[in-house]
Design a protein around this nucleic acid. Structure first.
Lengths: 207, 207, 207, 207
DNA sequence: CATGAATGAGCGTTCATTCAT
DNA sequence: AATGAATGAACGCTCATTCAT
């Protein structure tokens, strides 16, 4: 059934995917209306269900689809040879921001999907996420170089501080991207501000 | 209309408020059922709409109500005489955890309300939150003692790092409260772990 | 829920029951439209589901309801003291025809319900019917007087012939009631024609 | 349009007819799915509607088709030279059972079609059946030999009793075929039991 | 003040039928 | 001839909101 969808010309595919992602991102799974989706996509109600038997199928397909695009591009571009945590995390944060700028709809959809709690889809999402997290995040910090840290330091806690700081910083940026002055945000400037934070932390925790 | 509600004997008021908060927290705005609320509160459908003309009114009233309780208690108990950021933030984090333990229903409701996505109420919530953030958070750190910081340091950024770290830590705790081992979490232990993080940061940023 | 329905003033109850029976009888369970039912009953869509949570509940309620009316009146009026099969069956046939004339909608509904094969309701109906048949039909012929039959005769087969003849006769009458000349059918005339059949059979099988 | 269908190679015709009869017999007119039919027949949706403009056309064509096969074979094999009603009816009953065994799909389809209630096709079917009954059944008993009956007897009524008995008997057999012990039913045994009934009636009504 | 019967727009889903290819 | 993508009306059902009592 989804195979039929994949045979469509990609323009129409995208119209449907974008309409659906937008609706789900805006209203969450349950409140999202298939009526709105087809209206926005410019197709008939019947056609949507010709491709996706159920609303849930559409939602989970979108989740897989957008996650795949994100993760594939992420892992292609991340340099895992770099073992220094500050350099590694610097890369990741900038890459993340770049990906979001490049695919804002995907990001909005995913962001919302991750906190989705409608019972109908929650379990399926959690299953998918469990794999993701064990495959993903953990792996990324497994091979970090530890010897540069001050000896007295509890490494796990330091890594947490670094991650939380970078998350806080990213969210601040994203908040600006979303709401207010998206155009004022230049890669250069973000990159520089990020460096300030990382320098702080580096000088604090490295020998 | 809501004035009528405030004239009710407070026992009935509470039955209604609790029933509604529980339902909204569990299912989100749109999926929350007024039928369930009146059933749980032991009142008739008509009566609910006698006090709150629309579901939205009830929801927004609950939001104001629970936020007010939280903020009032928060500002009553926080010691603004303490100017040391680490001591101040330590207080705040522990106070927050304490408030959540004391009013879990309010917290659950607020937590869910903040990420509410239903277009009908989203805008109203964002408006309220904007005020809150500019009135609240910022104010708290305005009068922080700056002279203990190393001179080379950009104070605003340091404050951010501290806040983000504490937020990350709190979320980690709350995650554990919600899902896994709520009983293993003793105030003592949390307090100690928090201190470890704060010591790190203090030794990094103070002279 | 159905309790609410039973509290309605009986005029409205009947409007709903009749509309529903008519629709189910005409189109069968699956094809019957709740839209048509509410239109015919002059109520809103919501109200129907206020009384009967599901279409199936409405259908099964109607089945119980109409069956009960039929069986109660049937067993009240049948004279089980009469042991002669021909007299007994004469009574029954005339009683049946009388009941159908009195409650034609109930009969049409039941007649159709009995041959209903929609999987959703088939099993429930069969369960109900199993009880009915073992309680009903069998019981009626259990205590028939056998000694008047010619000795050479297989009594079970004779009873079958009598039953089938009476069924055939009844159906012929009902066919006329339904389609063509319902007014020409007077109880007297039917009764006389029935007697002719029974006399035939009596003279054939009795000593 | 149907002419086009008749030009098809007969293998494909049969695939379509069988698929459609099976689906209609199983689910009734309205619930039968054209999707299932084309899937089972191995043709495309479009093609079905190329041959039969509407579902209804297909259904009515099937009805005519299967009825014709039955009636033609029936009248070919029935011996209208035999004027004795008991011998004639014996033939007919056994022939009927034989035909059903030979063309069970046709029979199942027809059996279901006859009690079809969907308003869309009900009227058309009734029209066809009216012709059938006046052309068919009546004709068969028109030339029955009457002189062997006891003089006091109303011949029409006797014929009815015989027909109804045989119908009752057949239905009993078919009930068994369908539900319970289809393998226990041997032609021999059925034939003998039928004879018992006919002997009864013969001895009762013949001089 | 308090009830709960009543409304009707909206939901996700199905399916015979059409039509461009 | 043959395909199957595309349509849209209809389905059973839900639920915030209204209103007569």
């Amino acid at each position: 059934m989804i195979l039929k969808f994949l045979d469509l010309d990609s323009q129409k595919q995208n119209r449907i995917l974008n309409a659906a992602m937008k609706e789900f991102a805006q209203k969450g799974y349950k409140n999202a209306s298939t009526n709105e989706i087809v209206k926005e996509a410019g197709i008939s109600k019947g056609l949507l269900f010709h491709y996706f038997a159920k609303k849930k199928d559409l939602f989970l397909y979108l989740y897989d689809y957008s996650l795949e695009i994100f993760t594939i591009e992420f892992f292609q571009r991340i340099d895992l040879v770099e073992k220094d945590i500050f350099k590694r995390i610097r890369q990741m944060a900038l890459l993340k921001i770049d990906l979001i700028k490049k695919h804002p709809e995907l990001y909005n959809f995913l962001y919302k999907a991750i906190i989705e709690d409608t019972p109908e889809v929650k379990e399926d999402l959690e299953q998918k996420n469990k794999q993701l997290l064990t495959n993903g995040y953990a792996k990324i910090f497994r091979d970090i170089e530890v010897k540069k840290f001050k000896e007295t330091i509890d490494t796990d806690k330091v890594i947490n501080i670094v991650i939380w700081t970078i998350e806080g910083f990213s969210n601040q940026i994203l908040e600006k991207i979303k709401s207010q002055y998206p155009n004022e945000l230049h890669y250069e400037k973000i990159s520089k501000e990020l460096d300030v934070y990382l320098k702080f932390l580096e000088s604090a925790f490295y020998k």
